[in-house]
Deep mutational scan, measured.
Amino acid sequence: TETYKYDDKREAEKAAEEFRRRGITVTVEERNGTWVLESK
């Protein structure tokens, strides 16, 4: 599991889209005002 942090929800979702395009499952969730993207 890799974790990436973003200040902006849009950025996180854009990154998530890129991962999914490569066939990687990711989750995006907000933690304490930071958007956390996790690849499984």
Rank of each mutant, 00 (worst) to 15 (best):
S39K: 13
S39A: 15
R31D: 06
E18G: 08
R10S: 11
G33T: 01
A15D: 04
E13D: 09
N32W: 03
K40H: 13
E17S: 06
Y6L: 01
I24T: 03
L37Y: 01
I24V: 08
S39R: 11
E11T: 10
A15W: 06
R20H: 06
E29T: 14
D7F: 13
V26M: 08
T34V: 15
E18L: 08
E29L: 12
E30T: 04
T25R: 11
G23E: 01
G33C: 04
E30D: 08
E30H: 10
D7I: 10
T27Q: 07
K5S: 13
Y4V: 08
R22W: 06
E38P: 00
A15C: 11
K5Y: 15
V26I: 06
E18I: 07
A16K: 05
I24Y: 14
D8E: 07
V28I: 14
R10P: 05
T27I: 10
A15Y: 04
E30F: 15
K5G: 08
K14M: 10
E2L: 14
F19Y: 08
Y6C: 05
R20A: 09
L37Q: 01
K9C: 07
K9P: 09
G33N: 05
E13T: 05
V36A: 03
K40A: 12
L37T: 03
Y6I: 01
W35A: 01
F19G: 02
E29I: 15
E11W: 04
E11Q: 09
K5M: 14
T3N: 10
E30P: 04
K40E: 11
K40Y: 14
A16R: 04
T1W: 15
R21N: 09
T27M: 08
V28G: 00
E17W: 05
E2S: 11
T34H: 15
Y6S: 01
E2P: 12
A12K: 00
K40C: 15
F19E: 02
D8C: 07
V28A: 02
Y4E: 05
E17N: 07
K9R: 12
E2K: 13
R31C: 11
T34M: 15
T25I: 14
K40I: 14
A12C: 12
Y6E: 01
D8L: 05
T34R: 13
S39C: 15
S39L: 15
E2Y: 08
T25H: 14
V36D: 02
K9F: 10
E13K: 04
R20D: 03
T34W: 15
D8H: 06
E18D: 10
K14R: 11
E18T: 05
R31I: 13
N32Y: 05
V28T: 02
R20W: 07
I24Q: 07
A16F: 04
V36R: 02
I24D: 03
V28E: 01
R20N: 06
E17G: 05
A12V: 03
R21Q: 09
R21I: 07
S39P: 13
T1N: 11
L37R: 00
G23P: 00
G23W: 02
R31T: 06
R22M: 11
T1G: 11
E29V: 15
E29A: 10
V26T: 04
R10L: 12
A12E: 00
K5H: 14
E30I: 06
D7E: 12
E38C: 14
D8T: 15
E17H: 06
F19M: 13
E13P: 00
L37K: 00
T1K: 11
Y4Q: 08
R31F: 09
W35M: 02
V28N: 00
V28R: 00
T1V: 12
R22E: 04
R21K: 12
E38Q: 10
K9Y: 11
A12H: 00
T1S: 12
T1M: 12
I24R: 08
G23S: 02
E17V: 06
D8F: 04
E29Q: 10
R22D: 03
K5P: 05
L37W: 01
L37C: 05
T34A: 14
K5A: 12
D7C: 14
E13S: 03
T27H: 09
A15I: 05
E30K: 08
E18V: 06
E30N: 11
K14I: 11
T1I: 12
T27K: 08
T1Q: 10
A15P: 00
R21P: 00
V28W: 03
V36N: 02
E18P: 01
G33M: 02
R10A: 14
Y4W: 13
W35F: 08
K5L: 14
E30V: 07
E11F: 03
E13M: 13
T3D: 08
R22Q: 09
E11L: 10
T27P: 00
K9S: 04
A16N: 00
A16H: 02
V26Q: 00
R31H: 09
S39G: 07
E11P: 01
Y4G: 06
R10V: 11
T27A: 07
A15H: 08
R10W: 12
E13W: 07
R10Q: 13
V36T: 06
R31E: 06
S39F: 15
T34L: 13
G33S: 03
E18Y: 09
Y6F: 13
N32H: 05
G23L: 01
K14W: 08
A12T: 00
K5V: 15
K14L: 11
R22N: 07
T25W: 14
D8Q: 05
E2Q: 13
F19P: 00
N32F: 05
E2C: 15
K40P: 11
E38L: 13
S39M: 15
T34C: 15
K5I: 15
E11G: 05
W35H: 03
Y4C: 14
R22Y: 05
E17C: 10
Y4S: 06
